[in-house]
Design a protein around this nucleic acid. Structure first.
Length: 109
DNA sequence: CTAGTGACTGTTT
DNA sequence: AAAACAGCCACTA
């Protein structure tokens, strides 16, 4: 089981309409304080993967910028909005309402 | 083996 | 509030 595979396994458990931070995914994957590796793992992800990478955002609830300035950032936001995730005027997600809680599958907002 | 790089994060300026 | 710093470590060359 590679490190990447562990990360992907966690990301696949994020329910629709919810988001998780890189640090959170890292912790759940058994890789505490390796948020960067999570980002790197997602960057290496191939298109058409069954991994919902768009549900992983940074600690501020914002879509992280990629090197090279690809259009994926915009696509990520669009995908999340189509799932019901709301972005505020600053382009950030309210983590108090949309952060994924593994032990609470789908409680009230 | 070493060195450079990066979808991050918490602390300190 | 924003920017700089410093840890973090898998991957590639």
């Amino acid at each position: 089981m590679s490190t990447y595979a562990q990360v992907y396994a966690v990301v696949r458990r994020i329910p629709e309409g919810r988001v998780a931070t890189y640090g959170q995914v890292a912790a759940l994957a058994g890789l505490p304080r390796q948020a960067r590796q999570v980002g790197y793992a997602l960057a290496a992800l191939a298109d058409g993967s069954d991994v919902p990478w768009q549900r992983v955002v940074n600690a501020l609830g914002e879509v992280s910028r990629r090197a090279g300035g690809t259009a994926w950032e915009h696509i990520q936001r669009a995908l999340l909005e189509s799932e019901g995730v709301v972005f505020d005027a600053a382009g950030r997600i309210d983590l108090d309402r949309f952060a994924w809680r593994p032990d609470r599958q789908n409680d009230t907002l």
